Deep mutational scan, measured.
Amino acid sequence: MEVRTIKVFTTVDNINLHTQVVDMSMTYGQQFGPTYLDGADVTKIKPHNSHEGKTFYVLPNDDTLRVEAFEYYHTTDPSFLGRYMSALNHTKKWKYPQVNGLTSIKWADNNCYLATALLTLQQIELKFNPPALQDAYYRARAGEAANFCALILAYCNKTVGELGDVRETMSYLFQHANLDSCKRVLNVVCKTCGQQQTTLKGVEAVMYMGTLSYEQFKKGVQIPCTCGKQATKYLVQQESPFVMMSAPPAQYELKHGTFTCASEYTGNYQCGHYKHITSKETLYCIDGALLTKSSEYKGPITDVFYKENSYTTTIK
């Protein structure tokens, strides 16, 4: 009895394709271990004539594949690729409408935090270190965002349907971005203890939790000093293409032309909904596939993004 075979390709990165001759009487799992086709788990399936010449994702289970996976995804987590594939199996079914010149995501599976993050990423200057993220990001900007969303979920250790947080998501993504040249110098002034300067680099240099107003941050924000008295913390120097200011959701007025974009969060910790506000020729609110415009805006804002380049204080 002759062994019926077909020729397929296996890959971990969709760049390096490895030619395989597979036995049609055995499952993919018996031949390769966990195997995925377009995100779908085909591990328990036997090869079919229609699979001839198709590319299958496999887990990096030998040295060659491990090197290829690390170079593309910059992670050695053995569960990463499987999590990416199972997320992709959902995100490829989502709709990605162009809204006001940006790629958004039609609401499904509690994905409003991903839509808000995706919209924000198209408006701030950011370059990702893992080629996987950078490639998928370019495709997302062009309207094909399924891979990018699935990668975000995998890097953030999230599953489809789980509630997510924009600030946490951005923080994970910033860790995989090139923020080497970003720098922030802060000064804390206390009447009792004097003053202390701190220099922050990388992710810490672009994120701040405690106030939404970048102007206020430049002037000074009140913080408790270690001595128990009130101290003032203010920005001395900022070198970065953008800054992200966050605070627990509270009524906040966004003035046209003073910011790049913002995240609105309605609801409580267990259950809520994100919308995205962007400042173009007027203010726009993007909620999944829905767009509304207004000249002014007041609502429960939790993150505001500002364009920056270089700032030095005039406070002496």
Rank of each mutant, 00 (worst) to 15 (best):
Y306R: 00
Q175N: 09
S104R: 04
A69F: 12
C112Y: 03
Y214H: 04
K275T: 15
D23L: 13
K201A: 08
L59C: 11
V236E: 06
W94G: 04
R4D: 12
A142E: 13
G39V: 08
Y72P: 05
R83P: 04
A136K: 02
C182E: 02
D109E: 11
L133N: 02
V8E: 06
F128V: 02
V166H: 07
T103S: 04
Y138R: 13
S50W: 12
P60Q: 04
F217L: 15
R167Q: 00
Y252I: 13
G194H: 02
Q20Y: 10
V12L: 06
P248M: 15
T27C: 12
I315N: 15
K44Q: 15
P248N: 08
G202L: 01
G220Q: 03
I105V: 07
Y84I: 06
M170L: 11
T35Y: 05
T260Q: 08
Y84P: 01
Y252L: 08
Q195S: 15
N157S: 07
K201R: 15
Y234K: 08
Y155M: 00
F148G: 03
F128M: 05
H90T: 11
T11Q: 06
V8S: 06
A247F: 01
Q230C: 03
H256I: 15
A154G: 03
D109M: 05
G53H: 12
Y297W: 13
D13Y: 05
K219D: 08
T27H: 12
P300V: 14
M207N: 02
L65Q: 08
N157V: 00
Y72D: 06
Y172R: 12
A205Q: 03
H176I: 07
A262F: 00
D41M: 10
G257V: 04
R167S: 04
M24A: 15
T169C: 08
I277C: 01
P300K: 08
I45V: 13
N309K: 12
L163D: 01
D180N: 13
K191E: 15
C182M: 04
Q134I: 09
L121I: 12
K93A: 11
L102W: 07
A136H: 11
Y214P: 04
G202R: 04
T19G: 13
C225H: 08
V188P: 03
F305I: 10
K307V: 15
F56Q: 06
S104I: 04
E168G: 09
N100P: 05
T258K: 10
Y172L: 12
A146N: 02
A250I: 09
G33Q: 03
L173W: 02
V58T: 10
G272H: 01
I15D: 06
S25C: 11
Y284D: 09
P47L: 05
T10S: 09
I277M: 02
Y96N: 06
Y73F: 10
T76I: 14
M26Y: 11
L133A: 03
L212S: 02
K255G: 07
T35Q: 05
N157W: 03
L119A: 07
Q251K: 09
I152L: 08
Q134M: 09
Q238L: 01
A205T: 03
C285A: 13
C112N: 03
R139W: 10
K201G: 09
K219S: 12
Y265I: 01
E253G: 08
L173I: 13
Q216P: 00
Y137K: 03
G82R: 12
S310V: 14
Y28A: 05
M245P: 01
Q31C: 13
T27L: 09
V206D: 01
C112M: 05
Y155K: 05
Y96R: 04
L151Y: 05
D109F: 04
Y36E: 04
T5P: 10
G53P: 04
F242I: 01
Y172W: 10
T282F: 08
Y265A: 00
P248G: 05
A87H: 05
W107A: 06
L133W: 02
Y269Q: 15
Q98W: 09
L17C: 07
T169R: 03
K298S: 14
E68N: 05
C190R: 04
C190D: 01
C149M: 10
T192V: 10
C156G: 05
Y84F: 10
M209K: 15
F128Y: 09
F259H: 02
K95T: 13
I301H: 00
T312S: 12
R4Q: 13
F70S: 07
V58Y: 05
L254Y: 01
N268S: 14
L179P: 04
N49S: 13
A289P: 08
K44W: 10
A40C: 13
D303W: 00
S104Q: 06
F80G: 05
T35I: 13
F217V: 13
V166N: 02
N178F: 03
G210R: 03
G82A: 12
Y269R: 15
A247Q: 06
T266R: 08
A177R: 01
I15Y: 11
Q134V: 09
K293F: 09
V236P: 03
Q134N: 10
N187T: 09
F70D: 06
L81I: 15
L200P: 01
T226W: 06
L179K: 15
I315V: 15
Y284E: 11
E308S: 09
Y274Q: 05
A154R: 03
Q270C: 11
Q98P: 06
L119G: 05
C190H: 04
A177I: 00
T302E: 00
V22P: 10
E264D: 05
L81A: 07
E2Y: 09
I223Q: 09
K54Q: 13
S246W: 00
E162D: 14
V203P: 15
G272E: 02
G288L: 01
A205C: 00
T103A: 06
G202H: 06
G202T: 02
Y208W: 09
V160C: 08
P34K: 14
T211P: 03
P248H: 11
S246M: 00
Y311E: 11
G299P: 02
P248I: 04
S25Y: 09
A177F: 02
E204G: 10
G143D: 03
L17A: 12
M24K: 10
P300G: 06
K191P: 14
V243Y: 03
Y284Q: 13
L173H: 06
F70T: 08
G143I: 03
T258N: 09
K46T: 13
N61K: 12
K201W: 15
S86A: 15
P78H: 11
K106Y: 09
N157T: 00
G210E: 01
H256C: 15
N61F: 15
A40H: 12
T302I: 01
R139Q: 13
G33R: 05
M209E: 10
A142I: 11
H273P: 00
A69R: 03
Y57P: 05
A289I: 10
S181T: 12
N178W: 04
V189A: 10
R167K: 08
Q197R: 11
D62T: 11
H273S: 00
H74D: 05
Y96W: 05
S240A: 05
S294C: 10
H273N: 02
P224D: 12
S246I: 00
E68I: 06
L283D: 00
W107C: 05
I124M: 04
T198V: 14
P131H: 03
A150H: 03
V3A: 14
H51Q: 10
